[in-house]
Amino acid sequence: MARVKFLCDVERCIDCSGCVVACKEGHHVPVGVNRRRVITLDQGKSGEKSISVSCMHCADAPCIAVCPVDAIYQRDDGIVLVNKKTCIGCGYCFMACPFGAPQFPKGNIFGARGAMDKCTFCAGGPEENFSTEEKRLYGQNRIAEGKVPLCAGMCATKALLAGDADVVADVYRERVFQRGSGVNAWGWSKAYGKE
């Protein structure tokens, strides 16, 4: 099957943080750890834009490359997950990530970080599906239920898309076309002065 991807349509994102809280509530993520965040640029100015960011489940994930204990792995469907029991909290994945996706809860010794936590694409972790251990460490496993990630499912304006990369790209392409970029900017209605 094709790989899964996220895409946040910046023209639609209204910085409502629905995705953020959907993720936190759904997986009981502790306060301070943000698997998903909304970032707003040019706040209050003309051209203000917002985008929802989380782990992007990169095809050539830098976090996998740098992990000294190989705690991070990638599934066949493209989802990148971490094994919290293997993770030592060194933080290299955070340094390698272009999106700042790895999050670290408080550890116990000398302010050390706990094991890395990040967006799982609602696919849980290496533990057995729906087991108590999986829920405790990683949260829900919706992909195993055949359901979509909570963030995209609950996005207020359907700005955040998640799923099969081809389908996501298709949806976005149609939107861009509809919005009038390229040749549609001066389509027939404008040509003949119709409004």
Partner: peptide, 8 residues
């Protein structure tokens, strides 16, 4: 859809 309040 939800906003952050409805999602919580």
């Amino acid at each position: 859809a939800h906003c952050c309040k409805g999602a919580g």
